[in-house]
């Protein structure tokens, strides 16, 4: 009984701020302006503009998830090999930027990448040709990778550091070379971390609208932008909610894959 009383505030919190809003999304998504039931808002995903925006969002977030994985895995291996004092310092350095607001960091990238921005000014002074990726999908991927990389590094690092050194030593004793040890021991044992990292990068990347607005110059419409516009500009909450439900389905599929591959429940976040 005591435990239940203690959990009451959390229960209340999740009802008020998670369950009720979620129900409201479903209510708006499944009704039209007059309040009658309709599937139109959900089927609206099939229109050319919406499906293109969804496809583009999926494509960009898969690309940035892959880049994050390629960057994060070697880094996590290096981190896991260091001794305690060194690695906590490096992890700290990695988390440090996250203390600053996400929006500000993205705005900073805008200033860095602009035609007359910091990077191009430096390149120009040393006589190199400038780069022009601001307002392209390249800039959006860069923004996603930069913002979400820590979410990939931390779970992978966590699962790698949990691997018993003796297991690796045993593999080497029994004649496995470095590559075999990696493939047969380290990779399988760190899979939960990888899966959890993929989810934590893919989901926010799929739904973002801030990064594409700021770094894409509002020229590239992702599904997140469409939904945001429906709420803030067009004022059609029904369509916005309907499209959110579609997006939720993609996220749930992603999470199901996570749950299936991560049977032991080891894919802990941190």
């Amino acid at each position: 009984m005591n435990k239940k009383i203690l959990s009451a505030p959390y229960l209340l919190w999740s009802v008020v701020f998670i369950i009720i809003p979620l129900l409201m999304v479903f209510y708006y998504g499944l009704t039209d302006k007059s309040g009658a039931f309709t599937l139109e808002n959900i089927l609206a995903i099939a229109t050319v503009e919406h499906s293109k925006a969804l496809w583009l969002a999926i494509k960009l977030s898969i690309e940035s998830t892959i880049i994050c994985l390629i960057l994060a895995y070697p880094l996590s291996m290096i981190l896991a090999k260091l001794n305690v004092n060194q690695h906590s310092f490096i992890v700290f350095i990695f988390i440090l930027p996250m203390w600053m607001n996400f929006l500000l960091r993205t705005l900073a990238w805008q200033t860095l990448l602009e035609k007359t921005g910091v990077i191009n000014s430096i390149l120009k002074t040393i006589g190199l040709p400038g780069i022009n990726i601001i307002n392209t999908s390249g800039a959006i991927i860069l923004g996603m990778v930069y913002n979400f990389l820590p979410f990939m590094v931390l779970p992978i690092y966590n699962s790698l550091s949990k691997i018993d050194k003796n297991v690796i030593n045993a593999a080497r004793d029994l004649g496995a070379n470095g590559f075999q040890t990696f493939l047969k021991i380290m990779l399988p044992l760190s899979t939960p971390g990888i899966i959890s990292g993929i989810t934590m990068v893919f989901v926010p990347a799929l739904t973002t609208f801030v990064i594409s607005t700021l770094l894409g110059g509002s020229k590239i419409l992702l599904i997140g932008n469409v939904i945001e516009q429906e709420f803030t500009q067009t004022g059609n909450w029904h369509l916005g909610s309907g499209l959110s439900i579609v997006l939720m389905i993609f996220i749930i599929v992603n999470m199901l894959i996570t749950a299936i591959t991560d049977k032991d429940g080891e894919g802990t976040m941190l």
Partner: peptide, 14 residues
């Protein structure tokens, strides 16, 4: 009228 404008604008943006 608003809905028509918004629809066309979305086509431009996408």
């Amino acid at each position: 009228g608003d809905a028509l404008y918004n629809e066309l604008w979305k086509e431009v943006k996408s």
